[in-house]
Amino acid sequence: MLESDPVLEVRGLCVRHAAREGGRPSRAALADVNLQLGAGEMVGLVGESGSGKSTLVRAVARLLPAEAGEVRVLGLNWLRLHGRALREQRRHLQLVFQDPLASLNPRMSVGEALSEPLRAFHPRMGAPERREAVAVMLERVGLSAADASRYPRLFSGGQCQRIAIARAMIAKPRILICDEPVSSLDVSIRGQILNLLLDLQRDAGTSMLFISHDLAVVRHLCRRTYVLLAGRIVDEGPTAELFARPHHPYTLELLAAAPRLGG
């Protein structure tokens, strides 16, 4: 299905949340999840809350332990990496979360927040060079170089999401995972952020996994889409085809529930 080797490949991923002592035995949060992301591809992942979307993101990014399976990033099995080796590989895969204000440290200026990935992934880079890179990146996401000295609380939700995107993209990752990146933003702002992601994707050739409950957005943004239900991928395919002729009854249900104008 992919033209080249995938940059991200998830095979048979299982995640089980730890059971509470004396509580019921734990339930599988993800069961045998298979997913591929090609170079420069934009892929959608849809499902309702509790379906395991965020668990999948966290397990892939090694923020949660996986029970079984493989997560291959640029061919390397991430689940086998530890310590320094993992930290070095993290530059290839970055994340953007739903709530931009919560994902930025309130006590860190925008410039410091953007410098952090550079310090971590390019330790030899000098301070002037770093400042220059931060200024370029801020302008790239529609802010100004002068914003580097300001703090997150002075920015609106949409601007904070631009900062979070800038921080994720500044070390030039090959893969960007966006977990509901516009759900907490005003309707009139969402398009700005989605267009920014499209531009960055086109210019940098970054592969994006776009997680959303908004099927209309996924339909416009992603060429391929996976449908997650209760920790399992139940449907997948080219987005247009999938939404026109869903294989799984759950996809049909999701489509029927999507709010639309004139409905």
Binding site: D186, V187, I189, G191, L194, N195, L198, A216, V217, L261
Partner: peptide
């Protein structure tokens, strides 16, 4: 009119850009 345009339509062929209103709402 801008808000209405921001709601992605199902009937349209996928556009290359998303509609939005420039700027941010005033504080």
């Amino acid at each position: 009119a801008g808000l209405l345009a921001c709601v992605p339509r199902w009937t349209d062929a996928p556009p290359s850009r998303f509609a939005s209103i420039p700027g941010v709402p005033p504080g």
